[in-house]
Design a protein around this nucleic acid. Sequence first.
RNA 1: UUCGAGUUU
Length: 244
Amino acid sequence: MVARKVLLSSLASTGYIDEAYCLFEEMAEKGWKSNLKTCNILINALGKAGKSKLAWQVFLFMEDVGSNPNVVTYATLIDVLFKVGNVDEALQLFEQMKEKGCEPDVVTYTTLIDGLCKVGQVDEAEKLFSQMIDAGVSGNAITYTSLIRGLGKCGEVDRAGKVFQAMLAAGCKPDVVTFNVLLDVLCKSDRLNEALKLFSDMKKKGTADLVSYNTVLMGLHRARRVREAYKISEEMTRKGFVPD
RNA sequence: UUCGAGUUU
């Protein structure tokens, strides 16, 4: 039995997900217990493998194996549901977790905000952001970046800029991903020169990475600024980056 | 001390 438990967690975290699921189900049917962490890892692994139905099954079996879903369980499954396009179920699960008295944390809110943005529901995403603040949960760099990207993708560049300002005002420090998203938004909204300005600042600070380079490279090509694009790709090779 | 969330193509 102990051996099985060890086997289950290692299977779940090494990619043998079908095997892990079968073992989990067998254990559940025999009334054996599983760790909460193991269940969460399994739900995540199944989701990442596109097996959202099995991820749900694990969730449903959790009671039987003596583990109550926690905030990680809910956030993980909500993310899985969004990623397979089950927006309604994801939102229902969010309601369910609150009904059960499980307090959503930043990751939970961020998962929802990102998921809503990715299906184009940016207004809903912004509402949720306000709800999060009202609930006394502060956004982090990932939360703000998700919202900025979503708004930018919808052509709401000014709103995206406002969120960035709000991020700074809230004392939340933008990271490389935030800046890369900003680069992309600017590149794709006829504000390439602003993107280039930001990019040179990033290079000065030494924070430009492969994604920053690729993003700017694409932006320059889109704008038919071939010579500058060529210079950037040369610069990339010099720095050891491989352009796409 | 890594069970969950964000970026280009």
